[in-house]
Design a binder for these strands. Structure first.
Length: 340
DNA sequence: AAAGACACCAACCGCTGTTAT
DNA sequence: AATAACAGCGGTTGGTGTCTT
């Protein structure tokens, strides 16, 4: 059986909100809250609107501390970095920009930022960037975004071997050895600063071909997502000697925490592998259990990780770098962060 | 001045995940 | 376990203002 509509479509008003409707909604919510039930709210508030419409109006426009107007350069950078790392997950991006809503950021990206980046890209790459897809095409951050400073390298890009368009860039991936950054370095900018602990590997969370990425961001709960909740997102990975795998932690900043771990059962972490090879365990409520990038299957992810060539092993030596590899990586990072 | 093109952004739509029964 | 109700998300649309010809 199909799902029942949330409201009587014929008897609800659509289109722009009038000031009267705004004040009714605002007054009601300030007085009684949402009661956790948006569907029932419009009737109680005396509005002929769909509950979803009320929710959107409140979250995107009426709720306190909404920031309107120009985005700052800092916000631009953050959006670009996050988009590069996690794609169009606007609510997560919004959570890192206090006062901004996902809708705002989405609009800003689609109307301005994307063009801004295109304008800054080399002419041969000026093609509208596409959203990350199953084949991992990504927009190219502008030079200015890549030349911020090395601490901003939460997303690394390298041109694909033969690229012909703006969107043929992939994040340089993989786990970035900590010593490429200073200990206790703040990696992200703006409000999403965090400290890197020793022995922690850092890269971005989104998974792209040939390599795994990892992103940790957002140490401070902020209240900017469109759902009005405070979000703290910390996709993190700690690699212990006895454990090669992916784990992370997602918290909404309040009562809920979501952990995930994708562990790769390789008891022997050398390049040749060992017993128990290729055994993956997916734990629920993680990036994979929660909302994997839409086009990624677990198999894709396995493939990405196992095929990581950047560390010099064919398959299974996740996260380990030889000196030479580290040098290469460092070169790439330096190149992209300082010289690009 | 008028018409068309373009840009912006609020709002909508449809889908998915979660929760309650 | 199945179903319904709901919240939330991301992509798209449509109205309006601005710019260009």
């Amino acid at each position: 059986m199909g799902r029942a509509p949330c409201c009587d479509k014929a008897n609800v008003k659509k289109g722009p909100w009038s000031p009267e409707e705004d004040s009714k909604l605002k007054e009601y919510i300030e007085k009684y809250g949402t009661g956790g039930n948006w569907i029932a709210l419009p009737q109680k508030a005396g509005l002929k609107r769909c509950g979803k419409s009320c929710r959107l109006r409140w979250l995107n426009y009426l709720r306190p501390n909404i920031k309107h107007g120009e985005f700052t350069d800092e916000e631009d950078r953050l959006i670009c970095n996050l988009f590069a790392s996690i794609g169009s997950r606007w609510s997560i991006i919004a959570a890192q920009l206090p006062g901004r809503t996902d809708n705002d950021i989405k609009n800003y990206w689609n109307t301005k930022l994307k063009k801004k980046l295109m304008a800054m890209a080399p002419p041969s790459h000026r093609k509208p960037p596409s959203f990350p897809s199953s084949h991992q095409t990504l927009p190219l951050p502008s030079q200015s975004f890549l030349s911020l400073n090395k601490l901003d390298c939460t997303s690394y890009y390298t041109p694909a071997k033969s690229f012909s368009s703006f969107d043929s860039f992939e994040p340089i991936s993989s786990n970035i050895p900590l010593h490429l950054l200073n200990n206790n370095t703040c990696v992200a900018t703006s409000s999403s600063q965090f400290q890197i602990q020793e022995n922690q590997l850092v890269s971005s969370m989104q998974y792209y071909p040939m390599k795994e990425n990892f992103l940790t961001f957002g140490s401070e709960p902020s209240c900017s997502s469109s759902d009005g909740s405070c979000s703290q997102i910390s996709y993190g990975r700690e690699v212990k000697q006895e454990e090669m795998g992916f784990q992370g932690y997602y918290s909404n900043g309040f009562e809920e925490n979501h952990k995930f771990m994708l562990s790769y059962g390789n008891s022997n972490s050398n390049c040749n592998g060992g017993e128990n090879l290729n055994q993956w365990t997916e734990k629920p409520n993680g990036y994979f259990g929660e909302t994997p990038p839409s086009d990624y299957t677990l198999e894709d992810v396995k493939q990405l990780i196992s095929c990581s060539s950047i560390n010099g092993c064919n398959n299974d030596n996740i996260g380990l770098f030889s000196d030479a590899d580290e040098n290469k990586m460092q070169e790439k990072i330096m190149y992209h962060c300082f010289n690009y």
